[in-house]
Design a binder for these strands. Structure first.
Lengths: 349, 349
DNA sequence: ATGAAAGCGCTAACAA
DNA sequence: TTGTTAGCGCTTTCAT
């Protein structure tokens, strides 16, 4: 078998390179490159010549080759654990669009929450030479963030924060949100107030709970009871049953559920399995304001996480770090965005 | 300023290359490459030596460089229009996981359904040298599919099909699904059967409708009325109002809604705005069996789209084409997967 | 403003 | 099995 040139190997597959365009346009290959490099110096004539030929031949620069030499892939790794909670699809859609507008693209990696899996996934991400990483609903071990830092790849946590402030993160004001809910429940005359927690490993869960409990205490109110739902519907349902094991009269008259997703399960359990009216007998409040919260069947009172602002902040924060070569202004920042209490019909007023 | 080597420019950023490993291990750079290339011939000794040094130095092959020379990026472009409909997040999660298991990764592109936007997005995708493309909920112009074919990039449509059979696609048996619903509604004694359509540009909408109408006709039943919801909740709500403008007694006693997402809005409109009981006064049937369909508040009778099977089929179909260098077995295939009618409580039996 | 030349980090012949 | 040698398609000095 005789040696083939690349072009022959490709067969009819019309992979047009800058060299092809250069030849046909009678300029150097670098000239072609410059035409496609914003801010490079080319005369209008050559620019037009090149553009015309490029159009004819259907030439487009190869992003990967560009990435190799420039060291910028314009890809952002997105790590996400699960999409059941409607908050994430919405956020991802917006993140992706915002990134595209700034000419970046998301390379998506699904992971489970087990440490080993996350670590593997991060290796794969780094292999692709992404310019930055967004970790949504995933916590990072310090080893992992060190690996990223070492590789010069900035990371922003989305909807999670770290205890130490070594990592940038964007969340809503979860602590304040928790407070708002407690205050509202007390102001509206509830006496027996309970809480169904999310996954205890999540900072969102901890912060919402802390704010909630603190505000109760400030008002001299003790938590009536507490269950754990782990952000999973089944678990939330079980927690609800447990809360009312001693009858309605001994159960809470209000429940704060750590996110909307679980709150739907709690409402359904109350109404359809326990025969307890919401909000007449028990008020339910969630957190997130996902689309279904406003559907009439649930009409859920909740604290909104302002996805638009959270996404904008995430993109700005990450790209500032990506595009700033020098290490100034690269100090990690924790951005918290205030979200309003949305009063609907699942809690009595 | 004196010229710097790449390593110096990187500063402390520890970008370890195969050359570094090679030097330290006392082998050639190609030896290092072979160690990381499955199925390449290396002696156990060198393999161990290299692996040890690689570990020490934290070396991992650069996927982009590998992609450049091998012509395989192991990236799959995923184009998707909107994630409101819960069917898509679920599908994407599974697609992503299935691809990761086979060592591919998804580069995600959100698009609107306007032709120009889709075209732009495809250019960007192709620039990244993806090995294949999955187009979910997006139709492709023949120009577009030609561009992909020309670039040697196979495309599979997910949950959409094309009229001409020039493109591979994976859908459920939408026509049969529509039939099943009509037959079930007739068998359960409904007299005035209506339909709320999705976006008319979608093949899923057209196929479901065709099956539904055909089965009605086979039974000698005329469609009572028809509205258009465009797969949008607001539109579905308006269509529902229109259907009952003449009072309940003149409206349908059963509605097939072209997908679950709209069916939720229809049920809520009936119950909370029109005061019509579901299923006592009007039966509602949806399509997809998204997670919320099984939530007690809706308890929606629907046809299941088997996401697992659809995802498996999509991945197999696409990767077969990606990995088969020669053009045999690359003939486009239209795969349709049968989905069962899931009988719940939103339609009376 | 333009061209020549040197790589980016890797894989894939080829020769030994 | 191993090392040597060419590139992949592009950006980026450096001269001109």
């Amino acid at each position: 078998m005789t040696k083939m040139t690349a072009k022959q190997r490709m067969g009819a597959l019309n992979k047009v390179t800058a060299v092809d365009v250069a030849e046909r346009a009678g300029v150097s290959q670098s000239a072609v490159s410059r035409v496609f490099t914003p801010g490079a110096s080319v005369s209008p004539q050559t620019k037009n010549k090149v553009l015309k030929v490029a159009m004819e031949l259907g030439y487009r620069p190869n992003s990967l080759a560009r990435a190799m030499v420039s060291g910028k892939s314009r890809m952002i790794g997105l790590v996400v654990a699960y999409l059941q909670n409607q908050f994430y699809p919405e956020a991802i859609e917006k993140l992706s669009k915002a990134m595209q507008e700034r000419n970046y693209h998301l390379l998506v990696f699904m992971t489970s929450k087990t440490e080993g899996d996350v670590s593997e996934v991060f290796d794969e991400i780094l292999d692709y030479q992404v310019d930055g990483i967004i970790a949504a609903s995933v916590a990072l071990s310090s080893d992992l963030s060190k690996r990223c830092a070492n590789a010069g790849v900035p990371v922003v946590l989305f909807n999670r924060s770290q205890d130490d402030d070594s990592l940038s993160s964007v969340t809503s004001e979860n602590y304040q949100g928790g407070r708002k809910i407690a205050e509202h429940l007390i102001a509206t005359g509830h006496q027996r107030i309970s809480f169904i927690a999310g996954w205890e490993g999540a900072s969102t869960q901890r912060d919402r709970q802390a704010g909630f409990i603190d505000a109760l205490q400030d008002a001299g109110v003790d938590l009536w009871s507490r269950g754990v739902g782990n952000f999973i519907m089944e678990d939330a349902k079980a927690a609800t049953h447990a809360m009312f094991a001693g009858g309605v009269e001994n159960g809470p008259d209000a429940i704060f559920v750590a996110n909307d997703h679980m709150a739907f399960a709690v409402m359904d359990t109350l109404r359809f399995e326990l025969g307890i009216a919401v909000p007449e007998q028990v008020s339910v409040i969630g957190y997130d304001d996902v689309p279904a919260a406003s559907w009439p069947s649930y009409n859920l009172t909740t604290v909104r996480q302002p996805t638009n602002q959270m996404v904008t902040a995430t993109v700005d924060l990450l790209l500032a770090q990506v595009e700033n070569t020098d290490l100034s202004s690269t100090a990690p920042r924790q951005i918290k965005i205030d979200g309003p209490l949305i009063i609907r019909g699942s809690a009595k007023s």
